[in-house]
Amino acid sequence: MPDGTMTPTFTAPGLTAQELEVARLIVSALSLEVAPEAIEPEAPLFNEGLGLDSIDALEMALAVSKAYDVKLRSDDERNHRIFASLRSLTAHIEKHRTR
């Protein structure tokens, strides 16, 4: 699996640099068949959007915690909002990241 950070950078319209980084992390962690640049920042990640399920959510949480040391816990009632879109997830990571 190619490392997400090795992908040549070209700017995707609408994605910030951080969002693109998180998008690459998700695509690589979940082996998604979609280009990170093609993820709509405001589109829902789960169900009708990218079509991720709760096992994907778990893998994503594991990948995020490994990459940024941001723990996503189930007792966080904001989870619904955090997982809502790439944008909200990135915002959460930026706010809580320690590395």
């Binding site: 709760s54 096992i55 959510a57 778990l58 996503l72 189930s74 997982f83």
Partner: peptide, 13 residues
């Protein structure tokens, strides 16, 4: 409950 986004996070915990 299955079908919620954080179901598996809860299971993991």
């Amino acid at each position: 409950p299955l079908g919620t986004t954080d179901a598996m996070l809860r299971a993991r915990e």
